[in-house]
Amino acid sequence: MDPFLLEALLNGVLLGGVFALPVLGLNLVFGVVDVVWLCYAELVMVGMYAVWFLHVQMGWPLALAFVTCLPILAALGLLLHLLVVRPLLAAPPINQVLATGGVLFVLQGAATLVFSTDFRSLGVEMPPMELGEVFVSGTKLAAFVAALLGAAALWAFLKFTYVGTAIRAIARDREVMPLMGVDPKRIYLIASAVGGGLAGLAACLLVVQLDVHPFVGLSFGPITFMICVMGGLGNMLGGFLAAFLMGLIVSTGGFWWNTEMSYVVAFLFFILVIFLRPQGLFAR
């Protein structure tokens, strides 16, 4: 096979791993709380700034900055739920989405005011690795492995813990679960914190590959939403698979054509999927 195509395919899989984490986080929040966080990519942006600030400005070791980033973002997820989402739980879905859209502007604006619009780079690069005929960026490979570990940890949490079981149950039927003694308010809080934490993990993986600037969220936010919808909103496994599908489309599109057009192809593919299978590609 053409080594360049092979490289594109490999990069697609790696890219899919990067998309997967925010997709899982969004799906978790949507599945449980039934609200789309339109500002999810901006939460990731805040996390990227947190890592950059702690590592570059404060001189913390990178690992410590990563570990600190997760609780910060989990707290931010909680705050978002308490201040914005909870008061709107009974409002029409559109009002909820627009309010989180407002938070998108708040976070972008705050980042611009605090850090200016300069591009900030972490300046970490791992040596490329040779796999057979192709070279792979070591950073991307490490991020991919970390993303898979994060996804596996989330799966184990949902599958094997009591709280995780309650979260899955609420996602399936939010009327009956309160009758079974599960307090939905508490579950919403936990899901929001975990959703925020996943944004934090995604931030750690992205900050080593992308420069941070206040509008960086716009570069991967829209495609994240589309992947979620393609996999079926709230469907974790569907979203996970769709992330890799979209990663492959983007990277092979870049191989055949160019990066910009590959995103156009990916978005058109998304619209087509919605028309053909509105409930998501992997809906049962």
């Binding site: 914005v84 008061p87 709107l88 409002a91 009002n95 909820q96 627009l98 309010a99 859209g101 407002g102 938070v103 998108l104 502007f105 708040v106 976070l107 972008q108 604006g109 705050a110 980042a111 611009t112 005011l113 200016s116 619009t117 206040p214």
Partner: peptide
Amino acid sequence: TEFTGAAAFSYGILLVLFMLFLP
């Protein structure tokens, strides 16, 4: 010069407040 950030910030706050109190 810090106008862009301040504008986005205030838009966002207002949008949230409108949704919460004055939809």
